[in-house]
Computed example of a mutant assay.
Amino acid sequence: MEQREGHRPEVAEAADLAALLELSRALLATTSAGEVEVVLTELSVKLLAVRYASFLRYRPAEDDLCVTAQAGKHARELGVVLPRGQGLSWRATDAPTPVLRVHRDAIPPGAVRQPGAPDQFLLFAPLRTTGGQLLGVLAVGRVAPDFSLRDETLLATFANTGTVTLERIAQAAQAVAAREGALLALGLALEARDYETRGHTERTVALAERLGRALHLSLGDLDTLRQGAYLHDIGKLSVPDEILLKPGPLTPAERLLVQEHVRTGEALVRRIPSVSGDVLGVIRSHHERWDGAGYPDRLRGEAIPLLARIFAVVDVFDALTNVRPYHAARPVSEALEIIRAEAGRHFDPLVAAAFLQLFGASLDDVRRVSPTG
């Protein structure tokens, strides 16, 4: 990126814009802080023509800087920790300018240096939010030529773009955490009224996610499955206690009323703007059966949404292995035998097989199973 003698300013400007565009595109695809740090270091090496680039993440709990990403020839520092005040990276966080520039002949004695590394021209760009929170430091170096003001400006822009991306990812994570808490609270509302065994919501969410991963669901589908698991029985809030807690068999009229909870739940959750149709599918269809004998729509086979087929196995397993008003808890091996027997009738046989494998079993050897997971 160094402007060479004879290059026209407009050519240099076009190169700078191309570099920023490439960086922006790469950062848009990131979903975690670690990915952002890798992009910043790798593209700094490429676009600034430096010998090495390192990202030092600020860790508030430890109050230190830790090298979490690096690229280039000088790439042997992952995990190196700088306590507060140690090294040029910390000096950069206190500098009055966006970028600290250090001449290779003026590296101070207190600088932290990799053994055997040559003297280099150095740039350090802190990443700070608009509120002043330190996120880390992007550091680059090269033996020659010296850095120009243009290089400093580009690195500062890289750091600013990285800061915006890290803030976006942090805000998205906070939103997800808030949503997870709200969904869990709705699920726990059933447990607080003894409609479900205590812990049913968290157990089924965790087991559904585990089964989804075994079936190689995408991250988006896993998130949808989690949401559906949290909300699957929210419609039971409208069913009277004397029916839900009835220890004996239900009358036909009572059974129809209980079955209506899936429609009620779908109608309630539909009012939440951010909930997708696939989440509603889990809520409405997790009591459908592979053979078409389920409810509420008597869907059959692959007409049942996949995520609902996945959750159906998890929901039945948890119901079987925990105490309910109408039955005692069954041993895991017995519950797995029921899952095996119902494969191709109640359950999608491929989903049932994947579920059994979570416990070290198959459709053929459930009676010999010993839980592993």
Rank of each mutant, 00 (worst) to 15 (best):
E5Y: 05
E5T: 09
R8F: 15
P9M: 06
E13H: 14
A18Q: 12
A19N: 06
A19W: 05
A33W: 12
V36D: 01
L40A: 01
T41A: 10
E42S: 13
S44D: 03
R51F: 10
Y52S: 13
S54C: 12
F55W: 15
L56E: 08
A61W: 12
D64A: 15
C66W: 14
K73N: 02
K73F: 14
A75H: 14
G79K: 03
V80A: 09
V80T: 14
P83E: 03
P83M: 02
D94I: 00
D94F: 09
P96R: 05
T97I: 06
V99Q: 02
R104I: 04
G116T: 03
P118G: 11
Q120C: 08
F121C: 05
F124T: 07
P126R: 11
L127T: 04
T129P: 08
G131K: 12
L135A: 06
L135M: 09
V140S: 05
P145D: 07
F147Q: 07
T153V: 01
L154T: 03
T157K: 01
A159R: 08
T161F: 13
E167G: 00
I169T: 02
A177Q: 12
E180N: 11
A182Q: 11
L183C: 10
A185R: 12
A192P: 02
R193D: 12
R198T: 13
H200P: 03
L215E: 10
L219Q: 14
L222T: 06
G228C: 04
D233P: 04
I234P: 00
L237I: 13
S238N: 07
S238F: 13
E242Y: 11
E242S: 10
I243Q: 10
G248L: 08
L250K: 11
P252I: 07
R255Q: 12
V262R: 12
V262N: 03
T264E: 13
V269K: 00
P273Y: 00
S274D: 10
V275R: 07
G277F: 08
D278T: 11
V279E: 09
R284I: 03
R284S: 05
S285D: 15
W290A: 00
A293E: 14
R298T: 04
A303W: 01
L306D: 05
A308R: 05
I310G: 06
V316K: 15
T321V: 14
R324G: 09
P331S: 08
L336K: 02
I339V: 15
I339K: 07
E342S: 15
A343S: 13
A343R: 06
F347H: 04
F347M: 04
P349D: 07
V351W: 06
A352V: 04
A354I: 08
L356G: 03
F359R: 08
G360A: 11
V366Y: 07
R368L: 13
V369D: 01
T372C: 06
G373N: 09
